[in-house]
């Protein structure tokens, strides 16, 4: 296939509204966004946000997410501890959702973003289409990790029953929210056009 990209043709497409301009134009004529052929410093920003996200994820798992006081006793739950409590009470479906959103999604997202950013500079590592699929998945799924933060917020606001029972957020809630935001920024910093900028030399599937 004979492919001509906007960059090769001396054109720039607006990242926001997709209007095509000549290279050298600073701002989009239509929506006034800054124009650039590729997101500037894309990979550097991807790695920086990703490392910040991983760093924030560590205390998010070590500190308690939820502090429950019930009839005089205090109970602290970490993210994984909360999932185990849910599973013990028989709520396997809900335990599955929380485990998926708080553990599986963040961890696999770290791995996938790292793999994507690493493979873009190494043309032989992964085919362009599998990299594209990876990118689509992380863009879609990342925001859903926020669910556990909302659960903690709701429980804290709702369960304030004086001496009978009260729920308070733990320090992990902040760390976890930061980790989700940082990884979202990391995924947004990645420019999918980088996937195609080097010729694909990986073994073709037949």
């Amino acid at each position: 296939m004979n492919v001509l990209t906007a960059r090769e043709a001396g054109l720039v497409s607006c990242h926001r509204c997709e209007l095509v301009h000549d290279q050298g134009v600073a701002r989009c004529r239509r929506c006034h966004a800054h124009l650039s052929s590729r997101k500037p410093y894309s990979l550097q920003r991807v790695w920086a946000w990703l490392i910040a996200g991983i760093v924030a994820y560590i205390p998010a798992n070590l500190y308690p997410m939820l502090v429950t006081r019930q009839l005089g006793t205090t109970h602290e739950d970490t993210i994984v501890g909360g999932v185990i409590v849910l599973a013990d009470t028989g709520a396997y479906g809900i335990a599955g959702i929380v485990f998926f959103a708080s553990v599986v999604v963040p961890l696999s997202k770290f791995g996938v973003i790292a793999l994507l950013a690493w493979s873009v500079t190494r043309p032989n590592s992964l085919s362009q289409h599998s990299r594209l699929h990876l990118h689509e998945v992380i863009e879609f799924v990342g925001r859903w990790s926020m669910i556990d933060v909302f659960v903690v917020a709701l429980l804290t606001a709702l369960v304030q029953l004086g001496a009978a029972a009260s729920v308070h957020p733990g320090p992990a809630a902040v760390c976890f929210a930061l980790s989700v935001v940082f990884t979202m920024l990391s995924a947004q910093a990645f420019d999918p056009r980088l996937i195609w900028d080097r010729p694909d030399t990986s073994p073709k599937e037949t």
Binding site: L86, T89, A91, I94, I97, V98, R143, W144, M146, I147, D148, V149, F150, V151, A153, L154, L155, L158, V159, L161, A165, M184, Q188
Partner: peptide, 23 residues
């Protein structure tokens, strides 16, 4: 992407299951 109302509703469902036995 930063508008998370739908995620909040799913979070509310999870929170409700957590406290359903309690109160």
């Amino acid at each position: 992407p930063w508008s998370m109302a739908e995620i909040f509703v799913l979070g509310a469902a999870v929170a409700l299951v957590k406290v359903a036995d309690l109160a």
